[in-house]
């Protein structure tokens, strides 16, 4: 609970600071505020009216913070999430620090063009943000270990009996139609932009950036629209996307324990390839996941596939077979 309250208070507090700061001292600010300086240049090259200078960073922050806080609030168990802390804390510091620097640079100026670049401020803010991120990561991971480090990995692990003269293989596959749809739509948009750019319909500069963004989004969604897991004498193999590439492999000897576990996107921070306090999770749908603990690692690898219990049982059987 304390984690959620802190996250909400931090989100609301930073929003208030970002939106409120320019308004509090508006008497001493010019009509438009200098908000952007070129690299190494003293003179500002971008400005915003007071309301925009106050609302734009606040909205930017709200969107970022909501992305991290909403899953936290919806998660049933207070799963440890070092990433949330390591993102929320420095982002808030950077935005609030930059806002303070902008206000200070514009303070008592008659016109925004007179505002000088607050270079030293920015450097200090960035250094503080990096230190805060590192500190947040350490505190959160230590807490996660203290909370979740109980129980030996082998306890209650299911195992399947394989007769000596049998070769057994287990297959499972998960598809996320929404990811397929998003991949298809962004792919079409990317092609459209490419045609527009090549045909010279619009300014190519911005178009290429939009094309790159859509193409990357399409490819990454396609990659995580389906996942195949396979357990055989070669160990566990997890391959991604319609082409089954790339593939991650663990030999039976490289796995300490396997189990099935129910996980949802809210616990691991969303869909796709997720790194969270629970380790790495390939999350395509909420529900049953095959979870393994690779040898010599402190973090798990999980993939959301049906029939994970039998997959884990077979993997455990192969593992003990090899070590026996």
């Amino acid at each position: 609970m304390a984690v959620r309250t802190t996250a909400v208070l931090w989100t609301v507090g930073v929003t208030a600071v970002l939106a409120g700061m320019p308004f509090v001292v508006r008497e001493r600010l010019p009509d438009r505020l200098a908000t952007h300086w070129g690299l190494g240049s003293e003179v500002a090259d971008g400005s915003m009216p007071l309301w925009a200078a106050s609302l734009v960073p606040a909205l930017l922050w709200l969107v970022t913070a909501a992305g991290a806080t909403v899953p936290l609030l919806r998660a049933r168990a207070t799963a440890a999430r070092p990433w949330t802390a390591a993102v929320l804390l420095p982002t808030g510091i950077v935005l609030a620090g930059s806002q303070a620097a902008v206000v200070r640079a514009n303070l008592d100026r008659a016109d925004w063009r007179e505002a000088r670049q607050p270079g030293a401020w920015i450097v200090v803010v960035l250094v503080v943000a990096v230190l805060a991120a590192v500190a947040a990561w350490f505190v959160a991971t230590r807490r996660a270990r203290a909370e979740g480090g109980t129980g030996s990995p082998d306890s209650g692990a299911p195992a399947l009996r394989i007769p000596d003269d049998r070769r057994v293989a287990w297959f499972s596959r998960t598809v996320n139609p929404w990811m397929q749809l998003v991949a298809a739509v962004t792919g079409l948009v990317a092609v459209g932009i490419l045609v527009a750019a090549v045909g010279g319909l619009a300014d190519p500069g911005g178009l290429w950036a939009a094309f790159a963004a859509c193409a990357v989004a399409s490819l990454s969604c396609a990659l995580f629209s389906s996942v195949q897991a396979r357990v055989s004498e070669r160990g566990l193999e997890v391959s991604f996307g319609p082409l089954g590439w790339p593939t991650r492999r663990w030999a039976p000897g490289d796995i300490d324990a396997a189990r099935a576990e129910t996980r949802g996107p809210a616990q691991v921070g969303g869909w796709g390839y997720r790194v969270s306090g629970l380790g790495t999770t390939v999350m395509l749908r909420a529900g049953e996941c095959l979870v393994i603990r690779p040898r010599g690692r402190r973090a798990d690898f999980a993939v959301s596939v049906d029939d994970a219990r039998r997959g884990a049982a077979l993997l455990n059987a192969l593992r003990t077979d090899r070590s026996a």
Partner: peptide
């Protein structure tokens, strides 16, 4: 239901 690809089956069953 979709079967695993022939390549996957061949790898898993050796």
């Amino acid at each position: 239901d979709r079967l695993p690809s022939a390549r996957d089956l061949s790898a898993a069953l050796d």
